[in-house]
């Protein structure tokens, strides 16, 4: 496997070619035997061709920021969508997993909502559950009014693209 990354928006492919005698990494067509060490997670020291590159780095959820030679580089790493709806499934309808009652609505039809925003609260089996927007969008429908019961599988909210 290889590592497809982008450095300040420039796409590059990095690969490990060998580990002995030195770790040898390729970036594009160029090959670099190197010595890597890190005294703390945010610090690094890399020797390439007799020159030492010492710097700092920090990983955000999306990218790694690298400080080297008085310059900050933004590196995007190869990623894959894990977790819920890993495939980026575009669900427009938010359905009930079980029967229950709508306790309150936190939005109205036509509202623009962002991913993770609470749309409504339902209660089922003595438990209140917040139904949140799975993605950014506009509330197209809120078919079940507050204090109304619904059955399993009922559509509680529907989104449409902004």
């Amino acid at each position: 496997m290889a590592f497809d990354i982008a450095i300040d928006g420039q796409e590059r492919t990095a690969d490990i070619l060998a580990r002995k005698p030195d770790l040898t990494v390729s970036l594009g067509d160029a090959v670099y035997p190197l010595i890597y060490s890190a005294h703390a997670p945010e610090e690094f020291e890399i020797q390439i061709a007799g020159k030492t590159y010492k710097g700092f780095r920090y990983a955000t959820a999306e990218e790694v920021h690298v400080r080297l030679d008085g310059r900050t580089f933004v590196v995007e790493l190869p990623r894959f969508g894990g977790g819920h709806g890993a495939g980026g499934k575009q669900d427009n309808e938010i359905r009930a997993d079980m029967p229950g009652t709508v306790v309150s609505l936190h939005c109205k039809e036509g509202d623009e909502v962002t991913s993770g925003q609470k749309l409504l609260t339902i209660e089922s089996m003595k438990l209140q559950i917040s139904m949140v927007a799975p993605r950014d969008g506009v509330v197209a429908k809120l078919p079940v009014a507050a204090n109304t019961t619904f059955e399993r599988g009922a559509v509680l909210a529907a989104l449409k693209p902004v």
Binding site: F80, G81, G82, A86, G87, G88
Partner: peptide
């Protein structure tokens, strides 16, 4: 993929591409 990862539970993870599936496997 959707049938088996969402309804039947026969398969555990859905990937959009083979690369993604390989990354998940790794």
């Amino acid at each position: 993929a959707d049938l088996h990862t969402q309804l039947s539970g026969t398969v555990d993870y859905a990937a959009n591409t083979e690369d993604e599936a390989i990354a998940m496997g790794r």
